[in-house]
């Protein structure tokens, strides 16, 4: 049902993102999606990667502070109003989105959203009832093939 997201603490100063992305590169970890939230002093970079176990190991080894968060990845039609279709039922049921970000794949006509909510199960149930497809961890590789 859910997808693993890595959230990493970075100081807000030059060179921090390079250090992080280079670490993934050196370990042959590929990023599917990325989102950055920042304050004046620090930032949180959130990534969906092809091998989250390996990424977690190398981050730990390198001394990063990070967490693994289960988030919802949904497939949406890549056309105007595609997102409204996702947000409407969630709002109607009072589900609050902590944050959200988008990514695309090579698959024609589809886009994907990462949703971070407090209650994954409840949100998944609502989305399911509204015929919105959730992409789980093992399906990610499929999405990014071809």
């Amino acid at each position: 049902m859910t997808t693993k997201q890595l959230s990493v603490f970075l100081e807000n100063k030059p060179g921090q993102l390079i250090e992080f992305t280079r670490l993934l590169q050196e370990n042959n970890v590929n990023m599917h999606a990325m989102c950055l939230a920042d304050t004046k002093d620090f930032g949180i970079v959130r990534v969906i990667v092809d091998d989250s176990y390996k990424a977690a190991c190398v981050l730990k080894e390198a001394g990063f502070v990070f967490s693994i968060t289960p988030v919802l990845a949904v497939e949406i039609p890549d056309r105007p109003g595609g997102l409204v279709h996702v947000f409407e039922p969630l709002a109607a049921e009072g589900v609050n989105l902590e944050y959200t970000y988008a990514f695309t794949s090579r698959k024609e006509g589809s886009a994907y959203m990462i949703l971070r909510v407090t209650d994954n199960e409840k949100a998944a149930e609502i989305l399911g009832k509204n015929d919105i497809r959730l992409i789980c961890q093992h399906e990610l590789a499929e999405v990014f093939k071809n």
Binding site: A37, F42, I44, R46
Partner: peptide, 10 residues
């Protein structure tokens, strides 16, 4: 920063 005090939510 420590893992305990960290969260994915800003």
């Amino acid at each position: 920063m420590t893992p305990e005090m960290f969260s994915d939510a800003l």
